[in-house]
Design a protein around this nucleic acid. Structure first.
Length: 682
DNA sequence: GATCCTCGAGTTCT
DNA sequence: CTCGAGGATC
């Protein structure tokens, strides 16, 4: 630590003084949005400091404003455990939802008085947790799953609105939460530059912000126009937090942390809804994207009384703006052929940017739907992203229908194999009659067979299957059935596109691994009509062995719970057909096997969870949903996909879906992860 | 015969 | 996630 020539104390004092000045002007500029000096003056201060530090490297402190950009890229993003979990928020989509939220709050607090809420815009960025110790930024981490995120300190330090040092008076330890985002203009400029250099562009500001934050090289992150608003705290020590959320935000501002200027305290549900309308009107003019507003019960004592449910506080709700809808033109309607031969009409759209992504396809489900919505080729339609994900044609704008618009016609022959298309009496779906003669059905059958929930053949994706079916690899012995897959050699596979020697060897190994399976998975993998995972498991349990099932009559099969005449007939017919028997034989000859088990005809009634049914929604932190399901079943419980009055519990993880809503409507008990784990432990 | 409960199948984009 | 339809129940 000894240096040849220690800098004089005046120099040290000058450097400290410059840092204080720069920090102060950063605060004026970024937090208060009210600079005292010109940009040029500010630059001169920075220049002076850099000059001193360059001559006296010993004086460089890690929190100096010159040190925002670390020199070295990090190798990877380390995992960080949040001191206090980062919660998600419940969503409200309608005014009724908000009114219901307000009613629940008042009921729980047993008050008829109007609740005071702190209201703020909901930024469309990514949530980051910042840890300040003795006023210095020591760590920044992404939200991740709420419990643990990724260490992004190196890139967060480059965001100028994030103070490296807090102003005096800050607590000894403060975990503070904020939303990092990219302003729209900055996003456009950045994309324009990237485009000019022939680099890849980001589809929306949100992705751009996330991508920039997760950059390993801080110099790259520094070139990105990121900004931040702070909105709350996690753990803190060495101070008494204020009694109201709105006061907390004032405090954060005083510490030098930038808070949205649109934050407001409102009274009651009417105040909240008025705020929503106000912000909605401002939305288009804002420099950044928002997707709604958030209401938080302002009094912290009330927040504590309300507590949490399923990783989300009971005292806050995100009131979302309506899903974005956009107009576009239907260029064509094509028919896809599924595993069962089902012909599904898909609208090919003029690409349109909806809710953050470019949409160019939308399913029309079936011909009834096409007629109901009266979609024609050439029509202008309204597109929405249902549940924020899957694009949906909302309606046709009839006034814009051109005279050249053409009706959608169900083809008489399969577009893939030319076989007749049939539509059974009373059924909505039309099907290709080609069976496995149809290349589309063969491909889909193979995809299903290799799927994660079937034989789980890692590395056998769509692209590979397309090639295997379309261009025969093996002279005279193309891949027609699942059994043919196991004959493929690494050498043959390596000749495919997007397949090197390494991937080919991996795939052969995956095929080998997949041979060891269970009867339930095997039955499911066969792709018998109407036999999904649940039915396959029920059949496997009931019969115990494939031989027993093969010898069963239709009546025997109907003995299985939840299997009626239709499904029993499908199973029976499938197993009797010569080509199916041949495929099954070939698979077993290739070494596909499963443990034999005794038939268990009377399930349920055993185990501590017997007779209770569970529905899982959202993401759990301690295990996957599949693992949770397995544990429930192991304890004698039942897992179902949909909520009904008969459901015993809905287990809600982070960011739960509509099932949580449904559970509330039906008054079904909701467990959060902790409650669920406690139940399992009992 | 009506109604409710489940399961199966198909689907978009990053 | 959503829709359609098979199965169970009353």
């Amino acid at each position: 630590m000894s240096s040849p020539k220690p800098p004089g104390s005046q120099v040290r004092a000058r450097a400290d003084d410059l840092r204080r000045q720069i920090d102060h002007h950063n605060y004026r500029y970024y937090v208060l949005d009210d600079p005292e000096i010109s940009d040029a003056q500010y630059d001169r201060l920075m220049q002076s400091l850099r000059a001193i530090e360059a001559e006296n490297p010993q004086l460089v402190t890690p929190d100096s404003p010159t040190q925002r950009i670390g020199v070295h890229p990090v190798g990877h993003l380390a995992e960080v455990v949040h001191l206090l979990p980062m919660l998600s928020l419940d969503n409200a989509f309608t005014e009724e939802d908000v009114i219901a939220f307000d009613r629940r709050v008042r009921e729980r607090l047993e008050t008829s008085e109007e609740i005071e809420y702190a209201a703020e815009p909901k930024l469309d960025g990514l949530a980051v947790s910042f840890l300040y110790e003795s006023g210095h930024l020591v760590q920044a981490a992404t939200r991740g799953d709420g419990m643990r995120g990724e260490d992004v300190t190196h890139s967060v330090r480059t965001i100028k609105a994030v103070p490296i040092t807090l102003r005096p008076g800050a607590p000894a330890r403060l975990e503070v939460r904020g939303e990092v985002f990219m302003p729209v203009q900055g996003f456009k400029d950045m994309n324009a530059r990237a485009l000019a250099r022939g680099e890849k562009v980001f589809v929306n500001p949100r992705n751009a912000a996330a991508g920039s934050i997760r950059q390993l090289d801080p110099r790259l992150a520094a070139s990105r126009p990121l900004d931040v608003f702070f909105y709350g705290i996690g753990q803190s020590e060495g101070w008494t937090p204020p009694a109201r959320h709105s006061e907390l935000l004032e405090q954060l501002r005083a510490f030098g942390l930038k808070v949205s200027p649109l934050v407001q305290r409102v009274r009651g549900v009417q105040g909240a809804l008025a705020y929503y309308r106000e912000v909605a009107a401002l939305r288009a003019g804002l420099a950044y994207e928002i997707d709604g507003v958030v209401y938080k019960v302002d009094r912290c004592a009330q927040q504590r009384e309300l507590g949490f449910v399923a990783r989300a506080p009971r005292w806050a709700v995100a009131h979302k703006f309506p899903a974005h809808e956009e107009n576009t033109v239907v260029r064509a309607v094509e028919f896809q052929v599924g595993r069962t031969g089902a012909l599904t009409p898909v609208a090919r759209l003029e690409p349109v940017f909806v809710g953050g992504v470019t949409v160019s396809n939308a399913t029309l489900h079936n011909m009834d739907e096409v007629r109901r919505k009266d979609v024609r080729i050439g029509d202008t339609v309204v597109i929405r992203r249902a549940g924020d994900v899957i694009p949906e044609v909302v309606k046709v704008i009839i006034e814009r229908r051109p005279s050249t618009a053409r009706e959608v016609v169900l083809p008489a022959r399969c577009p893939v194999c030319g076989s007749d298309v049939e539509r059974e009496e009373g059924e909505v779906v039309a099907r290709c009659s080609g069976g496995l003669y149809c290349a589309a059905q063969r491909k889909e059958a193979l995809r299903h067979f290799a799927g994660r929930r079937a034989l789980d053949i890692d590395g056998l994706g769509s692209k590979i299957i397309d090639q295997l079916v379309d261009k025969p690899l093996i002279e005279g012995a193309p891949v027609r059935s699942p059994a043919d897959l196991f004959r493929l050699t690494a050498q043959q596979l390596a000749s495919l596109d997007r397949m090197g020697e390494k991937s080919a060897a991996n795939l052969v190994a995956a095929l080998e691994r997949s041979k060891s399976t269970t009867l339930a998975r095997f039955l499911y993998a066969l792709g018998i009509r109407d036999v999904g995972e649940a039915t396959a498991a029920a059949l496997a349990n009931h019969f115990g062995s494939l031989e027993a099932l093969q010898q069963a009559t239709v009546e025997d099969i109907q003995e299985v719970p939840d299997v009626g005449p239709v499904v029993a007939a499908h199973v029976h017919t499938f197993l009797q057909q010569a080509h199916n028997r041949a495929v099954i034989e070939a698979l077993r000859a290739q070494g596909v096997h499963w443990p034999v088990q005794a038939p268990r005809r009377h399930l349920g009634g055993e185990g501590p969870l017997a007779g209770r049914s569970f529905v899982l929604t959202g993401t759990l932190t301690s295990m996957s949903r599949d693992q949770a399901g397995a544990r429930i079943v192991a304890l004698g419980g039942k897992v179902s996909g949909s909520v009904s009055k008969k459901t015993s519990y809905v287990v809600a993880g982070a960011e739960p879906g509509s099932k949580l809503q449904k559970a509330r409507e039906l008054g079904v008990e909701v467990l959060d992860e902790a409650g669920f784990l406690a139940l399992l432990d009992q």
